[in-house]
Simulated assay, not measured.
Amino acid sequence: MRLRFIYLIMAITFISSCQVNTKRFTSNDGWYSLALPVGWSEYDDGNDGTYAFYNATTWTGNLRITTLHWENKANEDATSEFISQEMQENKGASKIKVGAFDGTFYKTEVEEDGVMMPIYYWIFGKNNNMFICSFTTNKKHEQDKNTLAEVEGIIQSITIN
């Protein structure tokens, strides 16, 4: 929990110090936008509904943002159910707030070409609208806390238009 608090403080510091050095990104459907650091670029990862970004100046990892929208059937809250399930299934998952949204944060690792790659997940939203954000990096950049703070700053800047 203490580490999570430190990441939050670093993200807030990053956001406040870099607001001048950001550009506004808006999803193709105009549903949401975010503040992207000037050195970051979008790339096509081939998945519909997913936006992918990376630091084009110095690669630190890949950030993917996917949105899901469910029809509101019988006033069910699909997002809360999904987040609860993710918290149960992922060791070390913690509750978070992203703006006005409730969510969860956790880290996993996958092996790619014999190398273990850390993947961080932020899943948040409300009612039947959800954001799934993941950041895949390598062990070198995982040790750099500024990298994760920069990504959290991007995620914290997400707003629904």
Rank of each mutant, 00 (worst) to 15 (best):
E86L: 15
N28T: 08
E42S: 04
T26N: 12
F53Q: 04
N55A: 03
W70P: 10
E86S: 14
G92E: 08
A93E: 03
N90F: 08
G99S: 00
S80A: 12
A11Y: 03
Y32D: 04
K23H: 06
C18Y: 07
K95N: 05
T26H: 00
D44S: 11
S17R: 14
T60G: 09
K23R: 11
T58G: 10
N62G: 07
Y32L: 11
E89M: 11
S94V: 15
E89N: 15
Y54I: 03
I65G: 03
V20A: 13
P37W: 08
E42K: 14
D77A: 02
K73Y: 07
Q88P: 02
E86N: 14
N62Y: 05
R64T: 15
Q19G: 05
L34Q: 01
G46Y: 04
T58Y: 15
I83R: 06
N75I: 03
F82K: 14
V20M: 12
F53P: 07
W70E: 05
T57F: 11
Q88D: 07
L34F: 01
S27R: 09
Y51H: 04
T50M: 01
S80M: 12
K23W: 02
S84Y: 07
K95C: 00
N21C: 10
G92Q: 09
N75V: 06
D45Q: 09
W31S: 14
I96P: 06
T66S: 00
F82W: 07
Y51V: 08
N21F: 09
G61V: 08
G49Y: 09
S80Q: 11
W40K: 12
I12D: 03
Y32S: 08
K97G: 00
L34N: 01
D29P: 02
I96H: 06
A56Y: 01
L34K: 04
G61C: 09
A56C: 00
S94T: 15
M87E: 11
G61K: 08
T26G: 06
I65F: 10
A35P: 00
S33Q: 10
V98Y: 09
H69C: 08
K23P: 07
W59N: 01
N55K: 12
E76K: 13
T60K: 10
A35D: 13
D29E: 06
L63H: 04
P37M: 03
A52P: 00
K73G: 03
F25G: 14
Q88S: 14
D45M: 05
S16L: 07
S41V: 15
D44K: 04
V20D: 12
G30Y: 06
T50S: 07
Y54N: 00
T13F: 08
C18T: 08
E71D: 14
Y51I: 04
L63S: 02
D29Q: 13
A78I: 01
K91R: 03
S41A: 09
S80R: 10
D45H: 12
T22V: 10
M87D: 05
E76C: 14
G39Y: 01
N55R: 14
S41E: 04
D77S: 06
L63Q: 02
